[in-house]
């Protein structure tokens, strides 16, 4: 029978001390939605769960940084992200995507940190944070480091985090001058996990694309940044022909996987279409500059 100790530290320092072990049956717990499924199915049998939700409130807050960026505490719920007024103007893509990400009950309890640390490629939030050029702040008992969101993932359900290391925040640089879009494609039902997630941010000046981030997830083993597509876009005027080429390049380069949602070759087609459509959508909706 499932049996474990639930520890409830009141400070992050205490939590890190409790997690400072190589024992994989000791795990941090925040929203718990994913871990609970793993525990119910017997995939994970914890000895100790360290409940992070009782640590200092600042770790759940969303703050504007002095340089215009945003710090999102790892314990912020997805719901708080959805309704945060600062993010609503700074990164409207979040408010647009979140109402259809998982479901209300999951968003009420799932935390930004857990969503990233789980390493599940079928999540909508990581690609969005990656295209917003987010940095993951990770801390363990002996120090802190920053990892670009797109570098967090080592493989299918795998991250580069060390044992005992937890995510404490995600830092977003200022989004001024950038426009972002996230397109979620499901193939079975609307409430399904994404079959393909495409997140794209563009910075444009005088009608030219100066910089971009092109992120693909769900169809791939892990979240993937398509730098070749970004290079193709760099310095180009945004127009339909360019976007078609970008989509084609994305489809050629992306390494998709077969699963219950569809074949790799079908997903490759979807990636191409969705990259092109995401770019067109930015052109239509984005403020530009």
């Amino acid at each position: 029978m499932l049996d474990f100790e639930l520890r409830r530290p009141t400070s992050l320092e205490d939590a890190l001390a409790m997690l400072d072990t190589d024992d994989p049956s000791v795990r941090p717990w925040s929203g718990g939605t994913a871990l609970m499924l793993m525990m119910k199915s017997g995939v994970f049998e914890p000895s100790v769960l360290v409940d992070l939700t009782g640590v200092e409130e600042e770790h759940a807050s969303i703050r504007r940084l002095e340089d215009g960026g945003t710090s999102i505490g790892a314990l912020a719920t997805l719901a708080s992200l959805q309704f945060d007024p600062h993010l609503a103007s700074e990164a409207p893509v979040l408010g647009q995507a979140l109402p259809r990400l998982a479901n209300v009950r999951v968003r009420n309890v799932a935390r930004v940190g857990g969503c990233l640390a789980h390493g599940d490629p079928h999540m909508d939030l990581p690609p969005i944070l990656a295209c917003l050029r987010g940095l993951v702040v990770a801390r363990k008992a002996d120090g802190e480091r920053r990892i670009a969101v797109e570098q967090l993932f080592a493989g299918y359900y795998e991250t580069v985090l060390d044992p005992g290391e937890i995510i404490t925040a995600v830092e977003l640089p200022t989004q001024t001058g950038w426009d972002s879009v996230y397109r979620k494609t499901t193939v079975r039902t609307h409430h399904d996990w994404p079959t393909v997630g495409v997140a794209i941010s563009l910075r444009r000046e005088a009608g030219l694309i100066v910089e971009s981030r092109v992120i693909v997830s769900a169809a791939t083993e892990k979240l993937t940044r398509l730098e070749a597509v970004e290079n193709l876009l760099a310095g180009q005027p945004s127009n339909a022909a360019l976007f078609t080429r970008a989509g084609r390049t994305a489809a050629e380069l992306v390494e998709t996987i077969d699963d219950a949602q569809g074949s790799a070759s079908y997903k490759r087609v979807l990636v191409g279409v969705e990259v092109r459509r995401a770019l067109s959508q930015i052109l239509e909706e984005g403020s530009g500059s």
């Binding site: 639930l6 718990g32 009950r105």
Partner: peptide, 13 residues
């Protein structure tokens, strides 16, 4: 005050 899935909520919590 917020809806959650009872089946994904630890009783202890």
């Amino acid at each position: 005050g917020v809806p959650v899935s009872g089946c994904l909520t630890l009783g202890l919590k």
